[in-house]
Design a protein around this nucleic acid. Structure first.
Length: 602
RNA sequence: GGGGCCGUAGCUCAAUUGGCUAGAGCAUCGGACUGUCGAUCCGAAGGUUGCGGGUUCGAAUCCCGUCGGCCUCGCCA
């Protein structure tokens, strides 16, 4: 009689001292075999953890014989009696370590080929291999925990929004291409040869239409697609916590989201997050941190030292300032201990992202215990300028100052990169702190010099601040929007805005973005039409769920938050997608490849 | 599209200035072993050095190209 594996009594890690003397039936995979010829020990794993099986040839020769045939990752069902382990043989590393199962019956449900890598958290197999065998990688406890945590986060989010009276509504995956922003993933239509659907970059327009429909509070855990180059924190398909509300201003959105994040943090980490989150003006974030997603867990703010730098003899500073640029400094507390090798390495990496070099000084004291600069560009500063810069930056003995000179945007890019890298390297980032903040007062537009037009900073449906509406005609560059970003520990979780709910303002914005009335009608005609029928004021936000996951679980890669992720070249190494297709399929879709190398189906 | 790192046994890594039969640990296979928990001990098998070309008496090593992985800048409204 085969074991009734469908009558499992408990999970592996649940077997404990309460069960001693009871018969249990467990199922799982063979983690490890320790065969003493006589006594055999097998660890069995399921998604809860491990339990040790004991096979005694004197007690049960038949099971013992099967135990000898077991290999890693065999799938088994086991029935036996739970026994307390003898004195001194308890394994404190196992949840079930106080007990073991004396096996009476065991079935091999299926055998396993030798796995290409060890199924263990500390496996050293490289990611390429693990992605190819993702189903095995997902047996590793660390990834199982990750996906289970993801489930709990999503559940907490749904709990919150349900309690708040939000309606979860699904929006189309096959939709209309609106060639703005990111590249679309296109899907050819068979029924309409030569026409294409696009996969949504976000449900943005649909959720606005739902507001016009009167749904008032919308939420969706929405899959989104963008055909752009990838990063550790970017995948071609990703999930957004997408929400929208009617009859609200930004503060209402902040309030709902802050309480949502607080609820999630409480559920996942048991911590209370202080509310309200700080509101940081875009301008201030750029000045103090050089980025619109500042990590405020540590200091090292950027300080403008243009005035003092002007008096130095250093050509790089002089040239930058003459060209209308700025000079900023960043103080690294205790940074004077950094070696030449370390700072050279930083300079090299910095050159890799477009910087000319890395001016720096180390801070010491002279004989009169006055601040003195050493090494690097120290020789270009008089004692007076030294004192001025030291005063502005708060530099003291043992510190190090990095400088950057040039156009403000470049200086911000280089110093904020440096700030993050140095903070990480020197372990200046406090652990277990959660710094949420809102970036507000974001400019409406940025000037696109190539195309000679304004671009939306957020997206073209973002409303300008009411008081700035007159500036739309006179000075668009100074218009601030009602857009906002949510930032956690230096990562942008997402952004949103109060939307334009008037067709005339929407048309004016499209005009500034150089979208002709014809193009407006072609791309967004349905939205402009809808805005004619009594649209409510509305606003919302979309947060990257995968990034939330990454930050909350301390993972370094977005891939580890997903069940079946893609590589940096957007390939799935397991399924080998994307793949060539049959000529017949292409014909049906009225498609013909122009690819230089002929891809053939495999 | 640009920059950086990487690719040697199933896995993780070695291999001196270019030089002898490309080694080790783990895994695998065989044997021994009745309290292990990374079991231990003995033995065996395991290689187109990602792929293609070049330089050389001789290439894992040097050069060119290419494929793939990771990080990153651009890009991602």
């Amino acid at each position: 009689m085969p074991l009734p594996y469908h009558e499992r009594t408990c999970y592996c890690a649940e077997v404990g001292e309460d069960h001693v003397g009871q018969t249990v039936l467990i199922t799982g995979w063979v983690q490890n075999r320790r065969d003493h010829g006589g006594m055999v020990f097998i660890d069995v794993r399921d998604r809860t953890g491990l339990v040790q099986l004991k096979f005694n040839p004197d007690r049960d020769p038949r099971s013992h014989e099967i135990a000898g045939r077991l290999r890693a990752e065999y799938c088994v069902a086991v029935r036996g009696e739970v026994a307390a382990r003898p004195e001194g043989l308890v394994n404190p590393n196992l949840a079930s370590g106080a007990v073991e199962i004396e096996v009476h019956e065991i079935d091999i449900l299926s055998e396993s080929a030798t796995p290409p890598f060890d199924i263990a958290d500390d496996t050293e197999a490289n990611e390429e291999l693990r992605l190819k065998y993702r189903y095995l990688d997902l047996r590793r406890p660390v990834l199982q925990r990750s996906l289970i945590t993801r489930h709990r986060i999503v559940r907490a989010i749904r709990e919150h929004f349900d309690r708040e009276g939000f309606i979860e509504i699904e929006t189309p995956i096959l939709t209309k291409s609106t060639p703005e922003g990111a590249r679309d993933y296109l899907v050819p239509s068979r029924v309409h040869p030569g026409r294409f659907y696009a996969l949504p970059q976000s449900p943005q327009i649909f959720k606005q239409l739902l507001m016009i429909s009167g749904f008032d509070k919308y939420v969706q855990i929405a899959r989104c697609f963008r055909d752009e180059d990838l990063r550790a924190d970017r995948q071609p398909e990703f999930t957004q916590l997408d929400m929208e509300m009617s009859f609200v201003q930004a503060e209402n959105v902040f309030d709902v989201i802050e309480r949502c994040m607080a609820h999630v943090m409480k559920q996942i980490h048991g911590v209370d997050i202080p509310r309200p989150f700080p509101r940081v003006a875009f301008d201030r974030a750029m000045n103090e941190y050089g980025t619109d997603a500042p990590d405020t867990r540590y200091d090292m703010k950027l300080i403008d030292v243009s005035a003092a730098a002007k008096k130095s003899e250093f050509r790089v500073f002089a040239d930058a300032l003459a060209a209308g640029g700025v000079v900023r400094a960043m103080r690294v507390p205790g940074g004077a201990t950094m070696t030449r090798k370390e700072t050279d390495r930083l300079a090299d990496d910095l050159r890799g992202i477009g910087a000319g070099g890395l001016p720096l000084v180390k801070v010491a004291q002279d004989d009169d215990s006055r601040i003195a600069f050493q090494t690097g560009v120290a020789k270009f500063f008089t004692p007076e300028t030294t004192a001025e810069i030291a005063g502005a930056t708060g530099a003291g003995e043992g510190d190090l100052l990095f400088f950057a000179a040039g156009a403000p945007a470049d200086v911000c890019k280089h110093l904020s990169w440096l700030r993050t890298v140095v903070a990480r390297k020197r372990d200046l980032i406090p652990k277990n702190e959660w710094h949420f903040l809102w970036i507000v007062d974001v400019p409406m537009f940025e000037w696109n010099a190539d195309e000679k037009r304004w671009d939306s900073m957020h997206h073209p449906f973002t409303a300008p601040r009411d008081e700035d509406v007159p500036l739309l005609d006179s000075d668009p560059g100074r218009v601030l929007s009602q857009g906002y970003d949510l930032v956690l520990n230096g990562t942008e979780l997402g952004s949103g805005s109060v939307r334009i709910h008037r067709a005339d303002v929407q048309r004016k914005i499209f005009g500034l973005l150089n979208i002709t009335p014809e193009q407006q009608q072609l791309r967004f005609g349905f939205l402009l039409d809808a805005l004619r029928y009594g649209p409510p004021p509305h606003g919302g936000i979309a947060l990257g769920l995968d990034r939330i996951m990454m930050l909350l679980t301390g993972l370094d890669s977005l891939r580890d938050t997903l069940s079946f992720p893609k590589t940096a070249k957007a390939q799935d190494l397991m399924t080998e997608a994307p793949s060539p297709v049959d000529e017949k399929q292409l014909r049906e879709l009225a498609l013909k490849s122009t690819a230089a190398t002929e891809a053939t189906p495999t």
